[in-house]
Amino acid sequence: MIDDEEKAGLPVFLERRSYRRRRLHDAARLLPVLGLLGWMVPLLWSVDSAKAPASSNVLTYVFLVWAALISACFLISSRMSRNERANQDTEGGRDGQQ
């Protein structure tokens, strides 16, 4: 019984981990798209001097997007580094990235 569980448990664990890793890569790919969308929002704003937003607001918005992107990127890449180290510990060998 124990043998069976071990046999059954290991591949599931590995599969789930590689599944997580692939989703992490998806997130890394998605991030610049979000960033681009966020930074192109000011294009929608009016430049008519009566209705145009104040520079300070624009500046705050741009830097907030920036900070959010950097934090998300930091989270993703530190998760990636952790995966990488865990991989090295358990597998030791090589596995195809991507």
Binding site: A28, R29, L31, W39, V62
Partner: peptide, 11 residues
């Protein structure tokens, strides 16, 4: 902004 996007999208 351009370089930031390139590096954030390093993947």
């Amino acid at each position: 902004l351009g370089p930031s996007l390139v590096m954030i999208g390093w993947f």
